[in-house]
Design a protein around this nucleic acid. Structure first.
Lengths: 221, 221
DNA sequence: TGAATAGTGTCTTTCAGACAATATCGG
DNA sequence: CCGATATTGTCTGAAAGACACTATTCA
């Protein structure tokens, strides 16, 4: 009577490393789509909440147990032939991670999103939807800091924006905007010279989730 | 091995009528939650795409066959005990409709969202998520016109914004903003006096999806 | 003519964009 | 001191907020 369908969770985990926006993927060695890159995913269990399933996949399949990854639901993909073996409905989650040590799962790797042109199933579409979500969230939330280590400089945060948006930003205007935004950055009182030059103040993420007014991407008039 | 789960589509269909933001609901007469308001929904069929299932539910269950309703995926709800009878994963869709004639399904009705305090299952949460999505989309897209008839005046569009946002807007500044936005409104050349006073120009929706720069809700500093 | 609503214009403030100038480190 | 990067400041233009004024209908 009521069709029952396997429901999976697929993760678009993004990070900024080596001057590239990169996604956590693995290379399939079995058909279908053997040899193509795939997002990590897994079927949800009968007694498992969706966010719990996403966290479990992140830990068990993606190899990022305990890592400070911001996870949010992205979108659900369900057209009937997206997996040729059987119908699967996939709830995609977007994860934003700082530049982490290599994942504990040996088959996982970080790949620049621009190089991921050939992916299994509809994972390319899901990945691009996740990238666009991340790009737009940087405009009106403080989630850019999710790509940074616990303590970071304004310049490091700016480089995150520049790489995710793929556009240069004026360092002085960016500094004014993020330090002026209520609750975005909390100064730690410490400084670092890891980027050379004059010591830069270190900040932690503030409590504010929203950036108001937003910082719009340049060149979209 | 792989758990199979019934997947449903639930619709948050919103409209602006009688000076209220209203949702399309029906009153349950069977347990569980007998007597409470519920969103219209239905299980997806094995060969059915998710948008197709949403359109089918809109036509068959909600009684809005052929109506000009903007449908977009909202979010997926899947915690295990959201339906006490069996586990169901629900993909919620948000629908934005103009003030339509009464739905053909007799048991459906429009209810102001503020009066829907007691709903079945987690439908109150889903409804509120849909309302918030609609509120924020009015900021940066031209979707406000989805609440209007095919031809409408600037004042009618403004009243949509005022009711959805529940805040008064300055008529002159609003007029400047929406008529100045590239591709938002297309003048038809005709006018109407249905609101009294000086004849107002009639517009149709333009092709632009995005409103740039966005029109932010007042009072969220 | 007057009430009602539509539409235009003006002033002010906020804020982004462009860019000069100063500050503070390592070497 | 010099090169590098951080931080502050200044000027300008775009656009929002507040509000005066004119335009065009119907009764």
């Amino acid at each position: 009577m009521v069709p029952r369908i396997p429901v999976s969770v697929d993760l678009v985990v993004l990070t900024v490393r080596e001057q590239r926006l990169s996604a956590l993927v693995w290379r399939r060695d079995q058909p279908p789509h053997a040899g193509r890159w795939a997002l990590s995913g897994g079927f949800i269990q009968l007694d498992e909440d969706l966010p719990a399933a996403a966290a479990r996949v992140l830990a068990e399949r993606a190899g990022l147990r305990g890592a400070p990854v911001h996870l949010e639901q992205l979108q659900t993909y369900g057209y009937p032939d997206r997996d040729p073996r059987q119908r699967v409905v996939s709830v995609a989650y977007l994860g934003l991670a700082p530049d982490l040590p290599a994942p504990s799962e040996a088959h996982m790797s970080w790949q620049g999103v621009n190089s991921l042109t050939s992916m299994a199933f509809d994972h390319r579409r899901i990945l691009l939807d996740g990238v666009e979500r991340a790009r737009s969230k940087l405009e009106y939330t403080s989630l850019g800091a999710a790509f940074c280590p616990p303590e970071f400089t304004v310049a490091e945060l700016r480089r995150v924006y520049e790489i995710v948006w793929n556009t240069p930003l004026d360092p002085r205007n960016f500094h004014r905007k993020v330090t002026g935004a209520e609750g975005f950055l909390v100064p730690t009182g410490r400084t670092t010279t890891r980027d050379g030059g004059r010591p830069a103040r270190l900040y932690r993420r503030g409590g504010a989730e929203l950036l108001h007014p937003p910082m719009l991407r340049p060149g979209r008039a």
